[in-house]
Computed example of a mutant assay.
Amino acid sequence: MKFCFDLFPVILFFLTFKFYDIFIATAVAIAATIAQIGWLWFRQHQIEKLMWINLAIIVIFGGATLLVQDEMFIKWKPTVLYWLIASVLLVSSLVLRRNLVEIMLEKQMSLPAAIWNKLNLSWVVFFLFMGVINLYVAFSFSVDTWVTFKLFGATGIMLVFIILQVMILGKYLEQAPEKILAAYEQDNLSEKIDNKPGKEQ
């Protein structure tokens, strides 16, 4: 459900383009993104930083597209977002010594530090690659092809990448419950020893 909700502006962009044109579709995408954030704020009173960034980028590049009636700006929007995410992941890791991928996923899996670093780097490379692919499709093919790729192609590549990562990290996901259980049993054992009758306090 969340996946479809996240794609809501892109789906409306695609459908509107099929019935009208790129400019009306751009206006609808901007409105849909604003509505999406408004709904989340109404329900949760909390918005992820990435959604604010996405809103700012689509307002700037979508607004430029509408202002000068040039589709080039909206075509650049996905690439700017992809490259910005890649830059944040890379700078946070190298400069701030904070692995953002680890921070987001550490509750779901337990990985060695070296694997977390490789995982973070793999996402950096992936988003850089996605930015290049978007530009290639946007400026090498028709607008219709690019709009279709934006919904189906980019989403499909993302899903394949995630599935491959889950397969590669599968053994760590399997080991995580065992580590949690072992830690729980160790805590229980320590508590029993501490509470053993006759033990000095």
Rank of each mutant, 00 (worst) to 15 (best):
F3C: 03
C4H: 12
F5N: 01
F5W: 10
L7G: 03
P9I: 02
V10A: 12
I11N: 04
F13G: 05
L15W: 03
K18C: 00
D21I: 07
D21S: 06
F23H: 05
I24F: 10
I24E: 03
I24P: 01
V28W: 14
I30N: 02
A31S: 08
A32H: 06
A32G: 02
A35D: 01
Q36K: 14
L40S: 11
W41S: 00
I47L: 04
E48D: 10
E48I: 01
L50W: 01
M51I: 00
I53D: 00
F61N: 03
G63T: 09
G63Y: 05
D70H: 09
E71Q: 08
M72E: 02
F73G: 00
F73T: 06
V80M: 07
L81Q: 08
Y82K: 02
I85D: 02
I85S: 06
V88K: 04
L89I: 08
L90E: 05
S92R: 03
L96H: 14
E102K: 15
E102F: 06
E102Y: 10
I103N: 06
M104I: 15
M104G: 00
K107I: 03
K107Q: 10
Q108T: 13
Q108W: 09
P112I: 14
P112D: 13
A113W: 04
A114K: 15
I115D: 02
I115K: 12
W116K: 10
W116F: 08
S122P: 09
S122V: 05
F126N: 08
F127A: 05
V132H: 08
V132Y: 06
I133C: 04
I133N: 08
Y136F: 13
S142G: 04
T145F: 12
F149P: 00
K150E: 06
A154K: 11
T155N: 14
T155E: 03
G156D: 05
M158Y: 13
M158N: 13
L159S: 05
I163D: 01
V166I: 10
M167S: 10
G170H: 13
E174M: 13
Q175F: 12
Q175D: 13
E178F: 11
I180G: 06
L181A: 15
A182N: 07
E185C: 09
Q186V: 02
Q186L: 15
Q186T: 09
L189M: 10
K192S: 07
N195Y: 00
G198N: 11
G198F: 14
Q201G: 15
Q201C: 05
